[in-house]
Simulated scan of single mutants.
Amino acid sequence: MEKYLIINIGGSSSKIGLAEKEKIVTTETIRYSSKTLKACGNLWGQLNLRLEDIQIYLEKQKISLSDLSGIITRGPLVKPIPKGAYRVNALMVEDAKSGFYGQHPCSLGSEIAMILGGGDLPVYTVDPPCSDEMISEARYTGLPFIKRKSYYQVLNHHAVARSYATSIGKTYEELNLVITHLGSGVSVASHKFGKVIDVTNGLEGDGPMGLDRTGTIPGKDLLKASLSEKHSTEELLSYLDGQGGIKAYLDTIDGQEVERRITDGDEEAKQIYHAMAFQVSKGVGAAAAALGTKPDAILITGGLANSRYFTQLIINRTSWLAPIKIMKEENELEALLIGVLEGLKENKILNYK
């Protein structure tokens, strides 16, 4: 019987699943506090902690690596590549660790999987966050030496798009969709007949602000801040990804906590939370315009899709554009499994070069 270990490393959690044939039979989520992760230093300093906890899980579940057909991991963040299923290799891990293409917790999964595999088990990944299908017009910024990049929650976008298409008896390739993922970072994408022709890049300061991302900020003010002696380069970069957005204003990345503050009468929390929803709504409108036609639907996914309060703020501003569907279930472990199994079945596992 084919068995796969599935690893999904997130900002504050490690999600693990064991699949037999085409079904996930057991899952576990290991959560980490900000204090614990901060004590590790930088992102790659978390490697041993995350690896050891996964190994403990495998021991508790009595899962033998020798019984596995392979390991599937989310990520990593490497050079721009097409969507699809890939065989993880040493070059992919090396590029992820270099940080040249950015840093994201999902990149840890590639090395963890390779270590666990020990060179004997094949390691796969599906729809990494650097998957790139953007049209040429979407890459321009106004400066020849700076181009917009395609970094977003590809796996989740792709999974919910296909799930929605199936639910209405169509294929993903038949639809024009606007999809926004509401997580610690926010992405808003224009899905045109199965390809993402444009998307915001919250990882590098583009689009709506998120729970811990600044999103787009006035360039002149950022330049002034970088030239002053008040902020180091490292500090400013951390604001773009990890210390900006709601966290910078309210010192939390917990949407439920923000909503509790609002219920308790915190007007500042209300204004900032509503401002984030305002920016997401603007992003949805822009993504619809990029399609060049009326969207068949607007899909809202990610952690904050579970918040009726927050999603209603977006619905109030954008429901005139197209029908809106809240996609609460992310099912990323299942999406990873399906992507690899389809790639193997159709002999379409891609090589990273």
Results as ranks from 00 to 15, higher is better:
Q55Y: 02
S66K: 11
E59S: 08
Y32S: 07
S34I: 07
N89S: 01
L91M: 11
T27A: 00
L58R: 14
D53S: 14
I63S: 02
T29W: 12
I54D: 00
S66R: 03
R31D: 02
T27V: 04
L68N: 08
Q61A: 14
I72N: 05
S64D: 02
C40N: 13
T26D: 06
A85C: 10
R74T: 11
I81C: 04
N48R: 15
K79C: 05
N42T: 12
W44F: 15
I72T: 08
T73W: 00
L51W: 02
L58Y: 14
D53M: 13
E28N: 12
R31V: 08
G84I: 12
I71T: 07
D53G: 09
A39P: 13
K62D: 07
A90H: 06
K35C: 08
L77E: 00
R50H: 09
L37H: 09
K38L: 15
L91V: 15
L49N: 05
D53Y: 06
Q46F: 11
D67A: 12
P82E: 01
I63D: 00
S64L: 03
I54T: 01
I30V: 10
I63E: 01
T29E: 03
R74Q: 07
T29G: 04
N48D: 12
L68V: 00
L77I: 03
Q55G: 04
N42M: 13
K38E: 10
Y57S: 07
